[in-house]
Write a protein that binds this DNA or RNA. Structure first.
Lengths: 342, 342
DNA sequence: GTGAAAGCGCTAACAT
DNA sequence: ATGTTAGCGCTTTCAC
């Protein structure tokens, strides 16, 4: 492994100049830079990140804290973030909190503290106040994606508005008995999201002068089987069957579609179904939905963090920026699972 | 941020002793260790990973190189690996090669070279010879999970045997017209896996004295919609319809189940279907399958790497270990999608 | 625009 | 078992 002084020797300059030429920090003449770059690539020189980090205080690494890896939303956010990070020469270190809970303590007490990352983003995480405190105590840029996080800059769709939109779509099609399959705290690390979506659903009903019927709400777990079970209960009832279902996630909505089929109901003739997400399978099932774009959210989160790091370099004097709430776009996609109420 | 000498001062010992006490490398009396640990926790001291890495040459970080994040298998492997790594104080840095291909070059030419990781595992990756070369040139432990990688230690199920097992299950139920939905090179970064599975299928047929019929093979893309399309073509044929389908992945098998339903065929009465994976949705769909356990594969991969690192510390003289092929266990799980041929 | 040199915060000989 | 000290390979003042 060639070192910086090998490059310096070959290029006939000092190590300081090599560092400046390769990092872009500090003035170097074009001729010199060219020589250095040439020498570096000739030797196959790549800077040692440890040495560079130690000397500069910057790691060029971003931490991503997620509750699971097994859900489409989380992984899409990470993929999006990594797209922009890799492009900027940053690495992404993953802290997955699934598991017994020992993970959780270790990550917050140890891993995040040892200066391995310049900034952190979390995905759909419901953090204890103490954990938020630890995160902020790092003194590093932090962004929370998908769900509000008190005291932290966040990036998320407006869950309430999105739920309203989905519900209003059904109302506008003439539906009056509209059921909701949501989430519940017991199933999820994050309970703000299901709550906001439920509130949006109820608001839409009230604004349309429709009653909010407890019988038409089921709490589930955001999975396909969960949506199936919930829908089957509601659709199986011989009386007062809903004519439309709004599920808080596409996976639950797909479960609902399968439940309807198993009950001999046709979608959308007998029942309209809409979800939230625009999951990859939504198209296959003809599912109407409100798309959120987790990949883009990840990209945007990464961009926010890189900007903050840049700002910190430019004006180190500035106090830490105020936490900001960024709203990610979401759009209604109408497919074949929703239609007018006959 | 307190440093090691703050701890040393408070504990009344030298920095070397602090280092030894906290890392466990080198002898420290129990009394001293207790004092140091107490001082460290009192100050909230956490070692700076950069400084430690630079001085020791060890990063306590493992690199994971994956082709996508959006597939259940990959994320499960990573989750498994991270379970054991976090427990050992290791971080996991993720290199996701999805994207335009620029990623791919950058990762191999730059990110992996800058000494940020002690070891690397790859998941289901079909690497160019040059990329394998680069990986090995790191001089670090490398393990390939899910798919053979020439010159690299690997951990994978025996795809051929697994495919045979699935096919033999169908044969033992009296099926004689057994179709196969596989993968194809054009859809996948990795083409060994679909090929091995197809060969296993054909072997099982031949060994049972059954003909291998080109009409009964469809190449697809390992997704649910892909499996649906492939199955619909084969099952829709009015003549010579297969009585059983072996799909190379559960997602394709689930697509096949849905295709059968849409054609008015009952599973398993009219057609038996089996997959490979034991995907989380397999149970919901009653899908018979051959389970591989990607989480455990990830755990085992991590353990292999940690062992190799340990071995390298113990006997640094030893030449790099020979590449070893480890076979991960896989077991037939019979659910309700397969039954005797009437 | 470039070079000299002082660290960055640890670890690992080596000495005691 | 513990302390002293010389780096690890860079970046960044500070001179020039």
């Amino acid at each position: 492994m060639p070192g910086i002084d090998d490059v310096a020797r070959l290029a006939g300059v000092s190590t300081a100049t090599v560092s400046r030429a390769l990092s872009g920090n500090g003035p170097v003449s074009d001729r010199t830079r060219a020589r250095v770059v040439q020498a570096a690539s000739q030797l196959g020189y790549v800077v040692s990140s440890d040495a560079s980090s130690l000397a500069s205080g910057r790691t060029r690494n971003i931490g991503a804290v997620v509750p699971h890896l097994s859900r489409w939303f989380f992984t899409s956010v990470i993929e999006g973030a990594e797209r922009v990070l890799l492009g900027q020469g940053y690495d992404l270190t993953l802290y997955n909190l699934s598991g017994d809970g020992g993970e959780r303590r270790r990550v917050f007490d140890h891993h995040l503290l040892r200066n391995r990352v310049d900034a952190v983003f979390t995905v759909s995480l419901e953090l204890a106040e103490e954990e938020v405190g630890r995160l902020l105590a790092l003194g590093k840029p932090v962004v929370g994606v998908g769900g509000p996080l008190p005291g932290v800059s966040t990036l998320t769709i407006d869950d309430l508005a999105v739920a309203r939109l989905a519900t209003e779509h059904l109302i506008s099609l003439g539906h009056r008995r509209i059921a909701h399959i949501g989430g519940s705290q017991e199933f999820d690390l994050d309970f703000h999201i299901p709550t906001s979506r439920r509130l949006g659903y109820e608001q839409a009903l009230r604004d349309a002068g429709l009653p909010v019927d407890e019988q038409l709400h089921r709490a589930s777990d955001f999975t396909l089987p969960g949506g199936y079970d919930a829908a089957k209960q509601m659709l199986g009832s011989p009386h007062e069957r809903p004519t439309a279902i709004f599920a808080a996630s596409d996976e639950m909505a797909i479960g609902a579609i399968l439940a309807a089929r198993d009950l001999g109901l046709s979608v959308p003739r007998d029942v309209s179904i809409i979800g939230i997400d625009d999951h990859p399978l939504a198209d296959f099932f003809g599912l109407s939905t409100v798309a959120q774009h987790p990949g883009r959210q990840g990209e945007q989160a990464a961009a926010l963090l890189l900007d903050a790091l840049q700002a910190a370099r430019t004006s180190p004097g500035r106090a830490r920026a105020e936490p900001l709430s960024h709203t990610a776009p979401a759009d209604l996609i109408v497919r074949s699972s929703t239609a007018v109420h006959p």
